[in-house]
Write a protein that binds this DNA or RNA. Structure first.
Length: 894
RNA sequence: GCCCGGGUGGCGGAACGGUAGACGCGGCGGACUCAAAAUCCGCUUCUGGCAACAGAGUGCGGGUUCGAAUCCCGCCCCGGGUACCA
C-alpha cells in the first residue's frame, strides 16, 4: 500500500465538500438563538489587486484558525469576506492602459476569491461584499446622507493637502513626512471647497472608549497620540491698532507673565492684514509666500533653524498689559490651536531658539525647586537679553517675577489660579485642544463612491433623496484627473434636475475617500442580503461588535479610528447600537524576505499561489502560523516551509497507516453524519458519498481513547492529553500558534516512536506496509497510536483543515470540523512520580524521581540523600533548605 | 527628541521568579539503498576532559532574592510609531 501525503488530491476534495454543503454558512436566525455564543471573527477587508500576497495568507491563516477553534468550542461563528474594491491602483491602471477600473477590479476579485477557496478558508460566501458594486455603495451613500442630516458632514473651504501626482486632496492621515502616502510626492497646500466629516466632535469619546477594548496597548497609544488631547487655556491678546482680539491656545498659562513676544503662522489670515500699507509689507509678503510654497517635510523638521519676520505690530498681554511685538514664523502651525501663540522663551525650547536668533528678551518666571533663586528674587525684574545656560526651564517650581499674587506659588497651582482669573476677566478660559482634525473625505478621482449631492442654483446643495439611491458611477472615456474630478467631464451624468425644485442642477463630481467604504463594511456583512436597508438593527446589534478583529498594524490609526467614529455616529443617529465596533484586536506582524519588506520592485516576493501549488494550502497556512509569534515580524524561509511540509507528511502518513491498522469503522449504525468511505477511497466524489457509505473493518475499531492503556501506550495517551492541554491554552486568546503547532509536532514525534516500536526494527518509512502485529499487545499499541493520531490531527485542524479532515475520517469515519474541541483529562496530566530538581546554592546538581504529593520533609530527605548533592556540601554548613513541592529542593550552604 | 516594542545557540524561536535553549531549520554521524533521493535513528550553547564531570552562559553594569532570561535602577544597541502640537 502506497502511503503518500498528497495535498493535491486531499485539498480540492474537501473544499468541494465544504462548498457543496455550504458548511461555513451561518444564518441570522442562528445569532438570535446563540445569544452570547454568537461570535464574529473578522480579518481586515483586502484591497483586491492582482493576487493575494503572503501578508494576506498570514492574515487569513490566523483568522481562520481562530474561527475554526471557536466553532469547535461550541460557538456560532460569523466569518465573512469581501473586497475594498474602490481605490487608486485600479484607476491609475486605467489611466495607463485604458482598461475600465471595474474590469481590472473584478478580475482581481475573481483571483482573490479563487485563492481564498484554495486556501480552504472557512468563509460564509453568501455574505460576500465588494465596495465598488452599486448594491454596496448605495448604502455608503445612505450613510453619508444620514451623517449629513445629523450635522456631521460639512462642506467648507480649507487649506488642504494637495497631491500633485495623484491630482487629488488627501486626508491629514494620508500625508506622511509631507508626502502623499501612495504617490510619495511632496504635498502642496491649496485652498479648496471640500467635504469634511466632523470626527473632531467625537475626539473625547474616541479617546475615552479606548480604555474598554482589548486592543494591543501600542495601538491604543498610537490612537491616543493621534487624537492628541491637551488641557490648557485660551487666552485673548488684543491688538489695539487693529481693534481685534487674537486668541492663543496654551498648555502653560502659568507662564503668561514670561511672554515676551507673539507669533502667528504664515497661513494666518490676518498676517497680511496687519502689515497692509506698512513698510514691513513687502518683507512679510515675501516670507509668507516662501513659507507657504516650501515643502512641508522641510518645514516640519524640528531641528530646522527658526525663521520669521517682525510685523511691526504689537498685541497686549492680558495679565500685565505688556505690549508684545508680533512676528510671523513658520514654526507656528495653522493646523494646531488658533494658528497664533504667545511666546515664552524662558520656558519653551522653540520660543527660546527663536528669541536667541532674533535677539529677543528672555524672561524667567519659574525657578526650579532645587535651584538657587535668580537675582532679584522675588519680584525683581530679571529679564535677560542673553539667556543663562539653565534656560529654557521646562520643569515645575514656584513663580517669580510674575505678579505679587502669584510669586512664590507653585506653578501648577498658579496655572489654575491664572486660568480662573482670565475667565473672570473675560480674557480667556480653560479649554481642551485636540490634535485630531476633521476628516476630509472628498476626492477628485473617478474610482470611488459618488457623493449623493446635487447643486442647484436656486436651492443650493440638495441631498439626493433616499429612494433615488444609488447615484450610480457613470462610465467615462478619460480617467485622467485634471485638477478636478474626471467625473466633471461626464456631462450627461452631471446634468440633472433638482430634487427639490425640479430645475436644472448639477451633480457633485467628487467621490468619497475609500476609507469611508471600509468604515462600515463589517456592519453590512451581518445582513448582507438586505436590499431594503443597509442592515436590520436587530440582527446587526446581535452580531456586533466584532469579537476578534485581525489585521496589520499599518491600519492602527486610519481605518480603526474612522470605523470607531462611524459606529459611534451611527449609534447616535439611532440606526445602530454599537459604541465600539472591534472588541478585541490582534495585529499580525509582517512577513519579510531576508529581513526586508517584500516588494515587487525589489523582486523579493513569494507568491502564496506557488507555495500552495508546490506544498499545498495546509503547509502554507501552518507554516505562516509556525514561523514565530504571529504578532511579530518574521522572515520567510524556504527551508522552513519544507520542514513544515515534512511534519504534515509524517503526521498524515502515521494517521493513514494507523487507520489501516484498524481505523474507520465507517457508516454502520448510528453514525449517519459521517462522510465518505475511509482509507483508500481517495478520489471518491463529494457529499453524495454520505448515503451508502461502505463499512471498512480491519481490526480493533476506530480511534477512541483506549480504555486502560499500559506502559508505552499509557505514555502516548498521556502525551496526547498533554498536547490537548497545551494547544488549548496556546490557541485560546493567546495567539501562540507557533508553540501550539510545536506541541502537535512533539506529539507526532511520540506517535512515530511508538509506531516504530510496533512495526519492529528500524522504520523504513513510507514504502513500508507496516507488517501489522497481530498479537494483543500490538492491537493495544495500534489503538493507542490511532487515538494519539486522531488527537494530533484534531488539534491541528484549525491550521491544516484539509489534512485534518482527511486523516480524521480515515481514523474515525467522522468529520473533524463537526467534533467538539478535545478536552484534556486531568488524570492523564498527573503522574505519581515527578523529576525533582536538586540544587545547591541555586545550581542544579542532580535530578531524582520523587512521588507526586510528597511533603517537604520527604523531599528534603531525598535531596540530602543524593551523592551529588552531598559532594557539594562537603566542608560546608547547611544554612537553609528551600523546598518547592512538586518542583525542586535548593540547599543553601555557607 | 518623545512614545512603544525587542536584544537568548550557526538561524527562526521556547521557557507561571524554580531543570535556559521546547519545536523547527541548518550541520554532523548512522540505518536503508548497487547508488542517490525520500524515509528512519542519534548527536548538535560554549570551554576543558576519553569519560564521569567541572566551569561559563540569555546586550552591558549594578541591585532585590535561597534562586533572575523573567522583577527593580542605570546604560548600550536594533526595530517601529510620531514629531516645531504651543
Amino acid at each position: 500500500m502506497e502511503l503518500r501525503y498528497d495535498p493535491r488530491q486531499i485539498e480540492p476534495r474537501w473544499q468541494r465538500v465544504w462548498e457543496d454543503e455550504r458548511t461555513w454558512q451561518v444564518s441570522n436566525d442562528a445569532v438570535v438563538d446563540a445569544g452570547d455564543d454568537a461570535v464574529y471573527v473578522l480579518e481586515m477587508l483586502p484591497y483586491p489587486s492582482g493576487e493575494p500576497h503572503v501578508g494576506h495568507l498570514k492574515n487569513y491563516a490566523i483568522g481562520d484558525a481562530v474561527a475554526h477553534h471557536r466553532r469547535r468550542i461550541g460557538k456560532t461563528v460569523l466569518h465573512p469576506m469581501g473586497y475594498d474594491s474602490f481605490g487608486l491602483p485600479a484607476e491609475n491602471n486605467a489611466i495607463k492602459t485604458g482598461q475600465h477600473p471595474r474590469d481590472a477590479t473584478e478580475a482581481s476579485i475573481a483571483s482573490f476569491q479563487r485563492q481564498f477557496r484554495e486556501w480552504g478558508v472557512s468563509i460564509d460566501w453568501s455574505r460576500e461584499i465588494a465596495s465598488h458594486r452599486p448594491e454596496y455603495y448605495r448604502w455608503t451613500q445612505w450613510i453619508f446622507l444620514k451623517l449629513l442630516e445629523a450635522g456631521l458632514v460639512e462642506r467648507r473651504s480649507a487649506a488642504v493637502n494637495w497631491d500633485p501626482v495623484e491630482e487629488t486632496v488627501l486626508a491629514n492621515e494620508q500625508v506622511i513626512d509631507g508626502r502623499g502616502e501612495r504617490s510619495g510626492a511632496l504635498v502642496e497646500i491649496r485652498r479648496l471647497e471640500q467635504w469634511f466629516l466632523r470626527i473632531t466632535d467625537y475626539a473625547q469619546r474616541l479617546l475615552d472608549d479606548l480604555d474598554g477594548i482589548a486592543w494591543p496597548e501600542h495601538v491604543k497609544t498610537m490612537q491616543r497620540n493621534w487624537i492628541g488631547r491637551s488641557q490648557g487655556a485660551r487666552v485673548v491678546f488684543r491688538s489695539e491698532e487693529l481693534d481685534t482680539d487674537y486668541e492663543v491656545f496654551t498648555t502653560r498659562p502659568d507662564t503668561l507673565f514670561g511672554a515676551t513676544f507673539f507669533v502667528m503662522a504664515p497661513e494666518h489670515p490676518d498676517v497680511l492684514r496687519m502689515v497692509e500699507g506698512t513698510p514691513q509689507e513687502a518683507e512679510v509678503r515675501a516670507y509668507v509666500n516662501k513659507a507657504l510654497t516650501a515643502d512641508r517635510s522641510e518645514r516640519g523638521a524640528a531641528d530646522k533653524a527658526k525663521t520669521g519676520v517682525a510685523l511691526g505690530r504689537e498685541v497686549v498681554n492680558p495679565v500685565n498689559g505688556q505690549r508684545l511685538p508680533v512676528y510671523v514664523a513658520d514654526y507656528v502651525l495653522m493646523d494646531y490651536g488658533t494658528g497664533a501663540i504667545m511666546a515664552v522663551p524662558g520656558h519653551d525650547q522653540r520660543d527660546f531658539d527663536f528669541a536667541r536668533t532674533y535677539g529677543l528678551p528672555v524672561k524667567r518666571v519659574i525657578v526650579g525647586a532645587d535651584e538657587p533663586a535668580p537675582e532679584g528674587f522675588p519680584g525683581g525684574d530679571a529679564v535677560w537679553a542673553v539667556a543663562p545656560d539653565s534656560l529654557p526651564y521646562t520643569g515645575d517650581g514656584p513663580l517669580v517675577d510674575s505678579h505679587p499674587d502669584f510669586d512664590g506659588t507653585p506653578n501648577r497651582e498658579a496655572l489654575d489660579a491664572i486660568t480662573a482669573w482670565l475667565d473672570r476677566e473675560g480674557k480667556g478660559e480653560a479649554t481642551v485642544n485636540f490634535r485630531l482634525r476633521d476628516w476630509l473625505v472628498s476626492r477628485q478621482r473617478y474610482w470611488g463612491c459618488p457623493i449623493p449631492i446635487v447643486h442647484c442654483d436656486a436651492c443650493g446643495m440638495v441631498p439626493v433623496p433616499e429612494d433615488q439611491l444609488p447615484v450610480v458611477l457613470p462610465d467615462i472615456d478619460d480617467y485622467k484627473p485634471k485638477g478636478r474630478s474626471p467625473l466633471a467631464a461626464a456631462e450627461a451624468w452631471v446634468a440633472t434636475s433638482c430634487p427639490t425644485c425640479g430645475g436644472a442642477a448639477r451633480r457633485e463630481t467628487d467621490t468619497l475617500d475609500t476609507f469611508v467604504d471600509s468604515s462600515w463594511y463589517f456592519l453590512r456583512y451581518t445582513d448582507a442580503g438586505n436590499d431594503a436597508a443597509p442592515w436590520d438593527p436587530a440582527i446587526t446589534n446581535a452580531w456586533m461588535p466584532v469579537d476578534q478583529y485581525i489585521g496589520g498594524v499599518e491600519h492602527a490609526i486610519l481605518h480603526l479610528l474612522y470605523a470607531r467614529f462611524f459606529a459611534k455616529a451611527l449609534t447616535d443617529i439611532g440606526v445602530l447600537d454599537v459604541q465600539e465596533p472591534f472588541q478585541a484586536l490582534f495585529t499580525q506582524g509582517m512577513i519579510t524576505m531576508d529581513g526586508a519588506k517584500m516588494s515587487k520592485s525589489k523582486g523579493n516576493t513569494v507568491a502564496p499561489r506557488e507555495i500552495v501549488e508546490r506544498f499545498g494550502a495546509d503547509t502554507a497556512r501552518t507554516y505562516v502560523c509556525f514561523l514565530g509569534p504571529p504578532d511579530h515580524d518574521a522572515d520567510w524561509s524556504e527551508e522552513g516551509v519544507e520542514g513544515v511540509h515534512r511534519f504534515l507528511s509524517r503526521l498524515w502518513r502515521l494517521a493513514a497507516e494507523a487507520a489501516a491498522q484498524g481505523g474507520a469503522t465507517v457508516g454502520g449504525g448510528d453514525d449517519a453524519g459521517s462522510g465518505e468511505p475511509a482509507a483508500g477511497a481517495a478520489t471518491a466524489g463529494g457529499s453524495e458519498a454520505g448515503a451508502g457509505a461502505s463499512v471498512t473493518v480491519t481490526g480493533a475499531p476506530g480511534a477512541d481513547q483506549p480504555a486502560d492503556p499500559q506502559g508505552d501506550d499509557l505514555e502516548l495517551v498521556r502525551k496526547a492529553h498533554w498536547a490537548i492541554d497545551k494547544v488549548s491554552h496556546d490557541v485560546d486568546g493567546r495567539f501562540a500558534f507557533n508553540t501550539a503547532i510545536a506541541a502537535v509536532m512533539e506529539l507526532t514525534n511520540a506517535i512515530s516512536a511508538r509506531r516504530n516500536a510496533l512495526v519492529g526494527g528500524a522504520g523504513t518509512g513510507a514504502g513500508t506496509d507496516g507488517a501489522a502485529s497481530t498479537d494483543v499487545a500490538g492491537d493495544a499499541g495500534w489503538a493507542a497510536v490511532r487515538f494519539a493520531a486522531a488527537t494530533a490531527v484534531s488539534l491541528l485542524q484549525p491550521f491544516a483543515p484539509h489534512l485534518a479532515a482527511d486523516a480524521f475520517e480515515r481514523l474515525t469515519g467522522d468529520r473533524v470540523w463537526e467534533q467538539p474541541w478535545p478536552v484534556a483529562e486531568q488524570r492523564f496530566l498527573e503522574r505519581d512520580e515527578f523529576e525533582l530538581v536538586l540544587q545547591v546554592q541555586g545550581k542544579v546538581r542532580d535530578r531524582v524521581m520523587a512521588p507526586t504529593g510528597a511533603g517537604k520533609d520527604e523531599l528534603e530527605a531525598l535531596a540530602l540523600a543524593s551523592d551529588k548533592v552531598q559532594g557539594h556540601l562537603e566542608g560546608k554548613t547547611v544554612v537553609k533548605v528551600v523546598v518547592v513541592p512538586g518542583k525542586l529542593v535548593n540547599v543553601v550552604v555557607r
